[in-house]
């Protein structure tokens, strides 16, 4: 009941925030240099005035800005995101077409980084001042500091060029005609390198954060009490230290989850993963504003949704948080 009210309140606010985001994005994009019609004409390598005028009229770019804004906002209100300038396909279809691949990639990376990060962080906290603990932290620091694209390229060089274990790019093997279980296995193989690449950075952050906040929690009185009443060290770590150390990790996980739609541009580009990130990057280069605005909208919506989920999870993890919303 408490949760239902919380969620309802938040959803109401979310609608207002989304509305403001739509307007802000629209105005922001108007400020970018580059006219979509000119870019399309440029890509065609030939253009006369008639061609440019046809394009502008089709996209409604010949209208004053407030008319364009009104058309766009009233379209969004009816969940009509318009057509992609370059591809001539409804924006909604394009996004839905790419969304599964992106969610598969970022979702896998999310789970992978969260689980491995917490495990590694707990291990490091339990082994503080031991060489093995320092090794974990050193590795985490390396992953934290290494640029993502470099990791991606190097993992391709090592695992697909030299060792030949894993495919270098794509979502599945083109032309192999796999179905059923074989297809699942094929996609899983293609998923290994991009998901790992994407997971490493967040895994490093989770590791560092888990360790710090667990060491922090371990100083608390209730841990001393637990130890005094004779609980096993493992049980103390899991039940008393880790659970209390989870809050900052939930915050961060909420942030990472919010980036799931648009946060994998580099990885998707290097690994030719047919996801939203690439779509967004191409839309930006082509000044395909409708498409770009559509993707911004979805990303923003997802961030808001995950913020609400994070708030609910806070309350589940720590019953002390109740009012104040």
């Amino acid at each position: 009941m408490v949760y239902a009210r919380l969620v309802l309140m938040r959803l109401f606010k979310a609608v207002i925030v989304l509305f403001l985001i739509v307007i802000f994005n629209f105005l922001l994009i108007q400020m970018a240099p580059g006219d979509p019609a000119a870019i399309l004409a440029g890509e065609a390598g030939a253009a006369d005035q008639e061609f440019l005028d046809q394009l502008r009229e089709r996209f409604g770019l010949d209208q004053p800005m407030y008319v364009q804004l009104w058309r766009y906002v009233s379209g969004i209100a009816m969940l009509d995101f318009g057509y992609s300038y370059r591809l001539g396909v409804p924006v909604f279809d394009l996004i839905m077409d790419r969304l599964p691949a992106t969610l598969l990639l970022t979702g896998t990376a999310f789970v992978l980084s969260l689980v491995l990060g917490i495990v590694a962080g707990s291990m490091a906290a339990a082994r503080v001042k031991k060489p093995s603990g320092s090794l974990i932290m050193a590795l985490a620091l390396v992953f934290y500091a290494t640029p993502l694209f470099w990791v991606a390229l190097m993992s391709v060089v090592v695992f697909s060029v030299y060792l030949g274990w894993l495919p270098a790019y794509g979502l599945y093997t083109v032309g192999a005609g796999h179905t059923g279980f074989a297809l699942v296995l094929d996609v899983a193989k293609h998923l290994v390198l991009p998901a790992t690449t994407l997971a490493l950075f967040f895994m490093a952050i989770y590791t560092r954060m888990t360790r710090t906040s667990m060491l922090d929690a371990a100083q608390q009185d209730y841990v001393k009490t637990a130890r005094a009443k004779g609980l096993k060290p493992g049980t103390i770590q899991r039940r008393h230290v880790l659970r209390n150390a989870l809050l900052p990790i939930i915050t961060l996980a909420g942030l990472q989850a919010g980036q799931m739609v648009g946060g994998a541009i580099l990885t998707e580009t290097v690994f030719a993963w047919p996801g939203i990130g690439r779509l967004m990057f191409e839309a930006l280069q082509q000044r395909d504003y409708n498409l770009l605005l559509g993707i911004f909208f979805f990303s923003a919506a997802l961030v808001i949704v995950f913020n609400i989920i994070t708030d609910v999870v806070y309350r589940l993890a720590d019953p002390r948080i109740k009012g104040a919303s």
Partner: peptide, 13 residues
């Protein structure tokens, strides 16, 4: 089959 690979390095690979 025309493969779509957006990154030049990946195409070379």
């Amino acid at each position: 089959n025309w493969h779509v690979i957006p990154d030049g390095g990946s195409r070379a690979v």
